[in-house]
Amino acid sequence: MDKASYLKKLRWKLRRLPVQEIDAALAYYEEYFEEAGQENEQQVIKQLGSPSAVAAQIIADFALKDIDSTASSTKKNMTTLWLVILAILSAPLSLPLLATVFLLILTVGIVIFSIIFSIIAVIVSIFLGGIAAFIAGFLVLMEHWPTALLFMGLGLIVIGISILLYPFVARVIKKIGQVSVQIVSQLFHKITKKRQEEF
């Protein structure tokens, strides 16, 4: 038996394997023969054994490799299945907790909006009160001029105070908005980080 007939028989014995496995095995043994040289073909054939024995070894190795890859994919599938089961079992606990967190964030938002709205309402009411006092003083001017001057002066002072307070109040409202966004984002980040650590 020479190299060509040996490799031909080996290919026939490996016919049940995938084509790429057959090609890889034959390429290996062909290279083995070439390294030994043409003069040592018979010695290599004796060393390797029959094509049937070599084919049996290759098929066994392939079967073991296939079992390992199947076990690995099965393990991954089982891990995914356990995560799904854990998520389903923790749903009765996590859904109310998530709803509570959502309501907490919503409540913080409503409180911050209420504070901003009340500050704006106070400034607007001071400004409108100043205008009302100035108009009232102007209407009383014909009846009692000292009272009219008092009301008009107080009205102008209150209007001036509300105009002076406007930039300060605008800065305070802007700062409250920035701090509230920062607090809500940090709270959301902590919650999502804890959820990721649980899984």
Rank of each mutant, 00 (worst) to 15 (best):
I45S: 00
L81F: 03
L93I: 14
L98Y: 04
K75C: 02
L128A: 11
L156S: 04
I116N: 02
G130P: 06
K8P: 02
V19E: 12
G130T: 06
G137I: 00
S72R: 06
F134S: 03
N40D: 12
K175L: 14
W145H: 13
I191K: 00
I88D: 00
L48Y: 01
L93E: 10
L106W: 05
Q38L: 11
K175E: 15
L187V: 12
I159N: 04
L17F: 01
I173Y: 02
S118E: 06
P96S: 12
I119F: 06
K65Y: 03
A55M: 01
I116D: 05
S114R: 12
L164P: 01
I58K: 00
A55P: 00
A60V: 10
W82Q: 09
Q178N: 14
I183H: 11
P96D: 11
A24S: 08
I126M: 07
A25W: 01
V84M: 02
T74V: 14
Q38I: 07
G130Y: 00
S50W: 03
I110C: 07
K175V: 14
I88T: 04
K76I: 13
T107G: 10
A56E: 02
L83S: 01
D66F: 02
I123A: 09
E21I: 01
Q196F: 13
F168N: 08
Y29T: 04
L7I: 13
I120S: 12
F127P: 03
S69L: 03
Q20K: 08
P96C: 13
W145C: 11
L139D: 14
L141P: 01
P18Y: 06
V158M: 10
F33P: 01
S69A: 08
K175A: 15
L150Q: 05
L48P: 01
W145G: 10
Q186C: 14
L128G: 04
T80H: 03
R11V: 05
I67Y: 05
K76G: 12
K9L: 14
